[in-house]
Nucleic acid binder design. Structure first.
Lengths: 226, 226
DNA sequence: ACCCCACTTCGACAATAGCCAAACCTCCCG
DNA sequence: CGGGAGGTTTGGCTATTGTCGAAGTGGGGT
């Protein structure tokens, strides 16, 4: 059952003037009484009766059909309203952080996620991780306001940054270079060969770079088990 | 209108078997038909009629009363169920963030919320604020998962952290000291005298501390106007 | 001025909700 | 075993809902 549907239905059901609430939602969806009536196979005047609060306690079946009709008609038109509400619901998520309950050695971490160390492998074993942050590199770079950057650290800066949607791996490293964010380890998801500048940055910053090809959900699952 | 109420009402309204859903919720609340009936001044058998789905489309007024009764009865018993759901549903409710549309000087900000600067007042005028974060200090320390910390920053780290429910002000400052969160200004709500260690931390971190006694809702109102 | 569209208002009527009381189940427990 | 607590079932009565169509209102647009 969809959250938006439940919300609309709930609002109508708890309203002192259910009809007015129905009207509000119909208008939000930009649907005319006639359209609605046609879809529901009832006359437009019936809709108006409801919206005018002629029925003080419409049955929930009416409410149910009403809500479904709004969604269905909206979907038929491209679903713009529905989409807007769904988007509103989920706060823009640029990243996902997780913490480990105990320190994890970076080399063990690499094994866990089937990763290969492509840069600075000699210092990998020295790094400890207390958590990880999964980031969509495109989104981080293109959409995330720079003021959000400090957020990426989560509880501890001693963590792995796992970049997804990387092409050459250069941009993520540039970001690491020019900002305060200095993770212990960087994982590039599904990266073929690492950009030269990226390698240089990693060396200067003394951050090992790992690459892995396992599925993201699979990876999250494995990390959760720590 | 409360979210939990809307959710229950919405679920009932959209259910194929509304009575069963009503029953489910009554049981979740651990209320007997008799209790419910008494509260609603209808017979228990009527409740059973509904729960047995004898009415295919109960009116929303019935649903409304039903939901209200559940909440009221639960509240009368201490509100444990209600509380549990609220906690479950809003993990992010540890804090409330707001952004200003323009930079605000910290000294002006202090005036706006009737605050007095008790530490580092000489640098107050140098600080700029782009937003604020209201936090319940007890909750933040006791209940907030580490992974939520980064969210506190909102759009910009140059903001005021307004701690409510403070006793001496020491713990919030310790948190600031040991984590990455370094706001521009810290406001302690209704704090009598500031703890000595807190003062020291503030000096080390160069963060002014303000205190104010105005009502929180009043404060939110004033901040919204910026 | 005229018309169309979106919407409102209202009388009518069959179908259903809303409610009760009384009888009936079913555990659980001393 | 006996009884009480919690729940279900059913017939029955009245108040409302669910629905229509016809007639009416008001704001554009041409």
């Amino acid at each position: 059952m969809d959250k938006l549907n439940v919300k609309i239905a709930g609002e109508i059901a708890l309203s002192e003037a259910p009809g007015s609430t129905m009207k509000k939602w119909r208008e939000i969806f930009g649907i005319t009484q006639a359209e609605l009536g046609e879809h529901l196979k009832i006359s437009a005047s019936t809709i108006s009766d409801y919206e005018g609060n002629r029925r003080k306690s419409p049955g929930i079946v009416v409410v149910h059909r009403f809500v479904d009709a709004l969604i269905a008609l909206d979907t038929g038109k491209g679903g713009s309203v529905t989409r807007r509400f769904r988007e509103q619901e989920q706060e823009t998520k640029f990243f996902e952080a997780g913490e480990f309950t105990q320190a994890v050695n970076a080399a063990d971490f690499a094994k866990l996620i089937d990763a290969k160390c492509v840069v600075n492998s000699e210092i990998l074993g020295q790094k400890k991780l207390y958590g990880y942050t999964l980031l969509d590199s495109i989104k981080v770079i293109m959409e995330m306001p720079y003021t959000e950057f400090p957020k990426l650290f989560g509880a501890s800066p001693e963590r792995a940054f796992i970049f997804t949607e990387v092409s050459t791996g250069r941009s993520p490293m540039v970001v690491v270079r020019v900002t305060q964010m200095k993770p212990s380890v960087i994982v590039m998801h599904k990266l073929e060969k690492v950009d030269k500048l990226a390698v240089k940055i990693a060396q200067v910053e003394k951050i090992p770079i790992l690459t892995t090809k396992i599925d993201i959900e699979e990876m999250k699952g494995r990390l959760q088990k720590i």
